[in-house]
Amino acid sequence: MSPEPVQTRIFEEEILSVSDVSLSFGGVKAIQNVSFDIKRGEIRAIIGPNGAGKTSMLNVINGFYHPQEGLIRFKGKARRRMRPSIAAAQGIARTFQNVALFKGMSTLDNIMTGRLPRLEKGIFGEIVNVFLQAAYLGPARRSELEQRKYVEEIIDFLEIQHIRRTPVGRLPYGLQKRVELGRALAMEPELLLLDEPMAGMNLEEKEDMSRFIIDVNDQYGTTIALIEHDISVVMDLSDRIIVLDYGRKIADGTPGEVQSNQAVMDAYLGVPHE
């Protein structure tokens, strides 16, 4: 594994802030009054026991769930509810806990879908686009080739050239997770949300994935928020960590601070709740 990260990475600019967000489904309170921020360029981890509300938190950030209370501020713009496609257009990409690839399509096509929001046009442009695509003429052909070039760079970066034409449904789990990361990268996100990127992987695959995450952060300067259960990976990778338990934030700080926090120990080791 990579050596102990340099503790002194300092980030100034805030890219996302979540303030006093609460989310409930009927009577079930999934998230209660959670606030935190994410700084541009950092790797931020969200950890906590099963059912702590981690995935719900990501769903709130990218607009899939609408919180009943609180505000989310992304790149200075505040909002409570929005459509996921708009969050995507603003630069938030994500991967999923249970791989959510398009099973009927090849690796290449899956990653190419990540380019689609980049090509959004108005309703009129969209109609023109359909005609150009159909005739495979001029701009349509050029843009297709440009995207292919960009996507091929991601394929090289993730070392998945050999499975380019394979339908993703046939790939092993570890590779599917990698393709999913590729699809998110193709969106050129400013904020990348990773939901358990290493779940179900063996040690070697985890090391590969950690390397990709660090490289993405490093080369593209992408801000990353990730959920992960493997604590040693989290401690190695992340700059700051949020700990959730039963929908509440119980700790927030650097790996060192979180590790020595009593509430965190209790949550993980199972002190009975009042």
């Binding site: 996921p84 257009a89 879908t113 969106m187």
Partner: peptide, 19 residues
């Protein structure tokens, strides 16, 4: 590709920005 994305998994398609 946008059609097939909606076909294969419409929720994921929406989250990656397909309307």
């Amino acid at each position: 590709r946008s059609w097939m994305a909606i076909r294969d998994m419409d929720i994921a398609a929406e989250i990656i920005g397909i309307r």
